[in-house]
Design a protein around this nucleic acid. Structure first.
Lengths: 229, 229, 229, 229
DNA sequence: TATGAATGAGTATTCATTCAT
DNA sequence: TATGAATGAATACTCATTCAT
């Protein structure tokens, strides 16, 4: 821990410019015009997952983007706002993806299976988002989570609906308890989350093939939906 | 986020006397005489989960213990070593607990069921340990993970053995793939981890009863073991 | 001290739309069309006394005026120039006022009395000016004070003349020293200044009625002119 | 304004050490052992009057003292606490001095005269204290002024008592108003304050001899006490 | 005439760690 | 065994100013 921070300039995002160290007085704007905001988001997303919230520093972001620290404040009120924007973006992205996938599949089972795989793929393909979205301790972030969590919940509810449809189709005993659906949905999500976070956190046994594991784990999850809760 | 840390010590003006600097000598010595090392571990464990790794400060630990900052360095080489010690302790504790529980149950199903529930209970009862043990990014900690992960793996293997026994007993198709057991074990652990981390990170839907959820989710997991992978 | 400045703009996460940066376009244009220079002076005057020189920020001025920061630079070379303009304005205003009052009174005593009261009133009614004019440390401001201090001196000389006339009329011993007049004038001004700054800096004992204090203090000052120096 | 800050090392306080620029890894403690706190106070006192509260920076103080910035925080909780300590010290010093002087004089007139002169002398000899004590805008400092101002008020009350004694002895009309004493005391203080601050703020006409002015102004003040309010 | 984007230097404060005692 | 003093590097954030448009 206290990781020897990566060499200062190693993390650049724009690979094409290496401005001469002789103080580049606005000499190298070079960035895709007008898109500093986006560049900042990109850099922050990457750094955030590499460093974690507390270790993410505005300085690092600026260095990665190639702009001054204060410029970041032109687009984001502060570190918190920056991170919130990233979370927001992540939830929205996954929401779009989930609908895409669900729309593209026929039948409850195919739909749920596809969405589960997509979830894991999304998490693995966007570990930056994933960690931001789900791996924060909620009391480590303050003040504006309300609206953010509405978004997260909507995603969960959509997943729950798919699971319920599949369970019904698969003839699962309809569960006496009135909250059976909610429990099942959350258990399913917990499983998917466990899968992703195990891999993302690099805790998967090296002897295991990742694709093989994902495949098996998703089947494990579907079996849970059929038989469980 | 960026919770404004409480002012380190009261910002009062010493009103009556000019000469004496009179900084507040630690208020609560409270330490169990002679066992500073243990006291430090105790304090750190609690603070770590309250604050997270990065926000955990040696000063805070020292203050909580009632000793000087530098005294901590007599027992631990640094912040990292302190945290490593805690992880070690956590893996060992869970190992003991798992064996206890497994020994106390009869039959593969009862054994696995009991151990799964115990896992969740352990995580919820010791969120400090749990987070330290499993919710760190492995590349967020450097240098000494080797022996730690051997310990973690041993725990996982033991869980896998129980799962395999149950799957066999339940007549699950023996899985063509040679790593079927490993996949199943990991999927099971991922599910349990998902359950615990969902709750520990305070992301469980408020409308859901926690006990009800845990019960349903464990049944979900067992169904996964039977039918999945 | 170090009052925590209000967060520059609301730290909210824009919740509905991802793409548009949508920073809050200034809420209150409010500017009397066409006279940006005056508007800036007005805003600066008010803010200056509320915040002090160092805490006065061009951003705040711009926000108060409803223009962009850089627009201020069209009319003033910088923060310093802005403040100098305010001082200038203040000295001129007091000069006009003093003459008005002096012209409106009959007899040396009435004249001096009226002017003294007017001075205090002026200071209390225009604390912004007052502080700018007299309560800055002269070595805290650089570069352009020459012509400003000529203006200030002229005001002091005029006051001195009135005091001399009154002293003569009141039969004060004519003071052997050749600079007696100057000393008396300055002492008088110092007293008036003390009165104003005590009140303006909010250091007047709460148990004292302000009007009563001003009245008494001016009588105190006149007595000084008669008997002192 | 925006004064081009004095050359970084020009303001050193300890004149005897000029440590080699080659990073003095604890090589040059040199300072009167154990007295960093005092050294910090000394440096801060000087800088404060040179720079003003807002411009006083912990960095500058550290540089002047020759210690690291963080070392200051070993003795003062922050900038505010540092300044409060200075104010405190100033009030206490003047209190001691005033009593000394009063005790050393015979008769109400001699006593008041001596104290007035001592006040001005004190202000001129300790401009740092003086400005700290009296020239702050009270709303520019927040949070802990209560106990400080009790000290200031006590000083004022003591001065008022001397003035009352002298007024009585001098046969001044005893003033119908019940608060006549308080008004007179405050007016006297305002005058003395005006005298000091005029000189301290470097606003005294260059053509005037300072000693001559002080002498005349104090006589002016005594005349005010006799005849005024 | 007016602006938005950008910046470099600056701010107070916190932290892990070292070292002489 | 224990500590207090000290420090260098880090942090988020603010500000006056410039410049191309």
């Amino acid at each position: 821990m206290t990781r020897p921070r990566p060499a200062p300039y190693a993390t650049r995002v724009d690979v094409d410019t290496l401005p001469p160290p002789a103080r580049p007085r606005r000499a190298a704007p070079k960035r895709a015009e007008g898109d500093l905001r986006t560049a900042v988001l990109d850099a922050a997303r990457q750094l955030l997952v590499r460093e974690g919230y507390r270790d993410l520093s505005m300085r690092d972001v600026a260095r990665a983007v190639g702009c001054s620290v204060s410029s970041i404040y032109l687009y984001f009120a502060g570190k918190d706002a920056l991170v919130h924007a990233l979370m927001d973006e992540g939830f929205a992205r996954w929401h779009r993806r989930m609908q895409e996938v669900a729309d593209g599949a026929d039948g409850a089972e195919a739909r749920l299976d596809a969405v589960c795989r997509a979830y894991v793929e999304f998490g693995l393909a966007n570990p930056e988002f994933y960690e931001i979205m789900y791996m924060f301790h909620s009391d480590r972030m303050a003040r504006y989570p309300k609206e953010l969590f509405r978004r997260a919940r909507r995603n969960l509810d959509d997943l729950g609906a798919l699971a319920a449809a599949y369970a019904a189709e698969a003839g699962a005993a309809p569960g006496a308890a009135p909250d059976a659906d909610a429990v099942r949905a959350t258990a399913l999500w917990a499983t998917l989350h466990g899968i992703v976070s195990t891999i993302v956190a690099d805790r998967l046994d090296r002897r295991l093939d990742r694709a093989r594991f994902v495949d098996g784990a998703v089947r494990f999850a579907l079996a849970g939906v059929r038989g469980g809760a």
